[in-house]
Design a binder for these strands. Sequence first.
DNA 1: GATTAGCACTCGATGGCAAGGAGTGCTAAC
DNA 2: GTTAGCACTCCTTGCCATCGAGTGCTAATC
Lengths: 345, 345
Amino acid sequence: METTDRKLAILKVVIEDYIETATPVGSRTVSKKFEDGLSSATIRNEMSDLEEMGLLVQPHTSAGRVPSKAAFRIYVNELMQEDEAVSDDEISAVNSFYMCHIGDMENLMKSSASLISAMTKQPAMALVPQLRRTTLKRLQIIPVIKGAALVVIVTSTARVKQKVIRVPDNVGEHDLSAISHMMTERFRGQSIADIDVSRIGTPQDSFLMDTDVYKAIEECITDALLLPDGSDVVIEGATHAFSYPENESIEDLKGFWSIFQDRVRLQRLMTEALRHELNVKIGEENGEEWLQNLSVITVPYKVHGRSVGSVGVMGPVRMDYARVISSLRIVSQNLSKVMSLYINE
Amino acid sequence: METTDRKLAILKVVIEDYIETATPVGSRTVSKKFEDGLSSATIRNEMSDLEEMGLLVQPHTSAGRVPSKAAFRIYVNELMQEDEAVSDDEISAVNSFYMCHIGDMENLMKSSASLISAMTKQPAMALVPQLRRTTLKRLQIIPVIKGAALVVIVTSTARVKQKVIRVPDNVGEHDLSAISHMMTERFRGQSIADIDVSRIGTPQDSFLMDTDVYKAIEECITDALLLPDGSDVVIEGATHAFSYPENESIEDLKGFWSIFQDRVRLQRLMTEALRHELNVKIGEENGEEWLQNLSVITVPYKVHGRSVGSVGVMGPVRMDYARVISSLRIVSQNLSKVMSLYINE
DNA sequence: GATTAGCACTCGATGGCAAGGAGTGCTAAC
DNA sequence: GTTAGCACTCCTTGCCATCGAGTGCTAATC
């Protein structure tokens, strides 16, 4: 059976009503919303066809119809209108936010996720820039208490990472300051992946020989910047999950929650998003059974033309795709602009 | 009516069964659990008396009985046995954790809250030390990108706070380093509350005159260390709230969640806890209507004999008080010990 | 006099059943 | 091709009977 224009128009109305109400849509409802004066009976016939084509599903005989995942796919590809999904006021509000933003990378990502979450009323995620050539900009070791010091690392991508390390008691503040200086001088501009703390020149003072301190610093660098430990993904607005009408039981909610806490998985998901301009994965399309009933939408942001990170939204299959995609695009554009100032790769 | 020993013994059984099952307890259940061979009829008479005394409540005529909040009060004061609520294995596991712990203050608090949460299966909180004489130990300004720098503050209490500030473009890395040095020298050992950045001596170079930078640094210090913004309280294990059988509807859960997200209130709550060795607030005793149906238990930890911070648990009135209190005590003891090494006030 | 067996009673939970209604599919007329 | 009309489906709601856990009371027992 072919998909006539009218069928698609009806499908669009059904989907949009369903997005709004989260309940099965009946033929009379569609008939009323339909611009051309078509009777409910006609709509019924068409809807029956659409069901045969696998685009609509009836929960039971006498209920209305619900769009299938395939229908959402068509909606996203062909039917939805992105323009005007987000008002001009909102757009300029977002733009001006980024105009006056100041902060480090983590902060910027957090704000971006917050913005998206507020715009879409969904939990939002953001992936910190994944740069092949992240270089060390500065390394500073600050004494905290006797026996422990804080290593603060600033990268060329404006990320700040910190970690507490153990230092021998005989290493004083001055020594740490000297080490900081030396290391910064020695490794500044080098790719993080290439830094090999043990390859530093022969140290003069005995404390510089202390392999424990070196090991700790090296581990710190690795830990902080290389391992995909989920710390590269930022999540905001997870509480929106409480408001989904489709989350009827506490079990559902718990399930969603546990998925949403698995940062390593989310990070992987967000990293895959770098390949395309727009990724809309509806239900099974995610390929993983833990995402069967969820949709994930991600949009990368770019620095000097290359996708380095992404922003995204995760939620029920029934979501306002037009609005979500528009919101992500707007934030991504702003992020790309701001980021290009931060990073020169 | 007087509370005979037998009445109290029965009350204890009822409460402990209710803590375990979260369902009303019937006379037969008590009769079976009761060491002396008392028939259910006798228990019934006694339970009827206990109800008259306001210690038991019947949800409806033909249900069992549920302990009132007053009953939990008596249970906590007189009936419960703290010893053996936590096994020796667990205790030594906690002890050894603290033995090999390394990290800054925030980290230590987080771990402590995590531990408590794991032991009690409840959401747990920890209050970072509130010291009257928190002094500055070190202030370091690290350039992040052009126009922005990171202020890292280390206090005498081993807390690390950071904030990004805007700096004029003409201020370079070397300048920031100089400012850091100067400020650290000038303010080291001073109480945070007393630091007045504007009172610094006449600076030689023009950039040091830049009031914007000064203002930003001052604001940073204030923000980071003085405002009770809720950042002094650490929360872990909030997801345990999903498992409460008393949270039947999503609304309940949402309510609990929103309370638990209000860090400022929690911080206030945890600060009040410093006054007593053990605080058990059951329902209305909290004084605030938002905590009507919740219990909050807090135990302070001490440094050199003075209570400086606290750890606590928030949950439904029906909770295993003996276990929770024991767990808090154990963590508090360890925390006091470790903390005394960190802080010399 | 305290304890207990026995029994009637209460009341929520459960399940079946009928009424109501939203929505459909089909047919016949336009 | 469209639509009015109508029978049909099946979920929802409310009602009622049944069941059972648990109680309170009374009378018998220790």
